[in-house]
Simulated scan of single mutants.
Amino acid sequence: MTSTRIVALGHHQPERVLTNDDLAAMVDTSDAWIRQRTGIATRRIAADDESVADMATAAAGKALASAGLAPADIDLVVVATSSAIDRSPSTAAQVAARLGATAPASYDLNNACAGFTTALAAADHSVRAGAARHALVIGAEKMSDLTDWTDRSTCVLLGDGAGAAVLSAVPDGGTEGPGGLQGVGPVVWGSDPTRADAVRLTGAWQPRFAQDGQAVFRWATTTLAPIAEEACRRAGVAVADLGGIVTHQANLRIIESVVRQLGATEAVVAKDVVDSGNTSAASVPLAFSKLVERGELAPGAPVLLLGFGGGLSWAGQVVSCP
């Protein structure tokens, strides 16, 4: 068995910025109403001809270049998405072909907003078991395709984008961080199927996003902090030692509530939801990549990743910052 480490990140967002004032011209809402309830100021919207695979490839290409690896070095590609139109070939296979990877295992994974952290855990397990050495793990969503632009309770939330991580094998006994963390800590994951209807993308294509916002808010603000604490415990990292916290960017009030319950006063907290909205499976890698790009996280610092959403599902782990 080997250990794994995230060696590089990359992200991509569409050019078009949709502001709260733009939305106020479309539905009965206002900038103040949206900010008060969600913390969101803007979100990015993909062009009609910009697909999930396009955004995933752009983010993956940046991560691959940052890692200093060639496409032929990648032997596993996993794309977390709930908005890709194509059933086959998978988005992962399309990304692999566009990058020029030679013969990687490739598949898509749908666990909604917990998709990236779930995919990261699956790739981590594959690398540790010796089934891969270098993996591309991508979260990519075009949520604008699934948005009901007449529903003011949901259309204000969603945005498009992609984030990617290169996960590589490292020998056991390598450089350790706080608590002995070498790279990617053990995952804490699960679901509450009795509340599966709280977040929905159901029906024939083209489905529309719907949710019971109050139920999700209550669940997230009462359930997630203990899950985050368990992820830290399994990684051998004290909450006080966290250098960063990157949760799913669903709602600024949820993020702030979870961080407050954790008492992680020294950690840099991702709040990309303000600029990007809720990008589902893309939100964790997108926000993480931005923090690293801006130099807000120290290399090697332990960072808590926590995805949660439809299912209701969750997956979280502590990783060493690349």
Rank of each mutant, 00 (worst) to 15 (best):
46 A>K: 12
47 A>C: 11
47 A>Q: 13
48 D>W: 08
48 D>K: 07
48 D>C: 04
49 D>T: 11
50 E>W: 03
50 E>Y: 11
51 S>V: 14
51 S>C: 05
51 S>M: 04
53 A>C: 04
53 A>Y: 06
55 M>W: 03
55 M>K: 02
57 T>H: 06
59 A>E: 10
60 A>R: 12
61 G>M: 10
61 G>A: 13
61 G>R: 15
63 A>C: 04
63 A>H: 08
65 A>L: 13
65 A>P: 00
65 A>Q: 08
66 S>R: 14
68 G>V: 01
69 L>E: 12
70 A>F: 04
71 P>H: 09
72 A>F: 03
73 D>S: 05
74 I>A: 06
76 L>K: 06
76 L>W: 08
76 L>G: 04
77 V>F: 04
79 V>H: 05
79 V>E: 05
79 V>S: 05
81 T>M: 02
81 T>V: 09
83 S>F: 09
83 S>N: 09
84 A>K: 00
85 I>Q: 14
86 D>T: 15
88 S>A: 06
88 S>C: 08
89 P>T: 00
89 P>V: 00
90 S>G: 12
91 T>Y: 01
91 T>F: 00
93 A>Y: 09
93 A>P: 14
94 Q>P: 03
94 Q>Y: 05
95 V>T: 13
98 R>I: 00
98 R>F: 01
100 G>T: 03
102 T>S: 11
102 T>L: 12
103 A>G: 10
103 A>Q: 05
105 A>I: 15
106 S>Q: 12
106 S>I: 07
107 Y>G: 00
108 D>N: 05
109 L>H: 11
110 N>P: 01
111 N>R: 11
113 C>L: 12
113 C>G: 05
115 G>M: 09
115 G>R: 13
116 F>Y: 15
117 T>C: 00
118 T>W: 05
118 T>G: 01
120 L>G: 14
124 D>L: 09
127 V>E: 05
127 V>G: 06
129 A>P: 11
129 A>G: 11
129 A>R: 04
130 G>W: 02
131 A>V: 00
133 R>P: 04
133 R>K: 13
133 R>M: 09
134 H>Q: 09
135 A>K: 08
136 L>T: 10
136 L>M: 06
136 L>V: 10
137 V>H: 06
137 V>A: 10
138 I>Y: 09
139 G>E: 01
140 A>K: 07
141 E>R: 05
141 E>M: 14
144 S>E: 02
144 S>F: 05
146 L>W: 08
147 T>W: 01
148 D>M: 03
149 W>K: 12
150 T>L: 06
150 T>Y: 07
153 S>C: 00
153 S>P: 14
155 C>V: 01
156 V>W: 03
158 L>H: 14
158 L>P: 00
159 G>L: 06
160 D>Y: 12
161 G>A: 07
162 A>F: 13
164 A>H: 09
164 A>Q: 05
164 A>F: 10
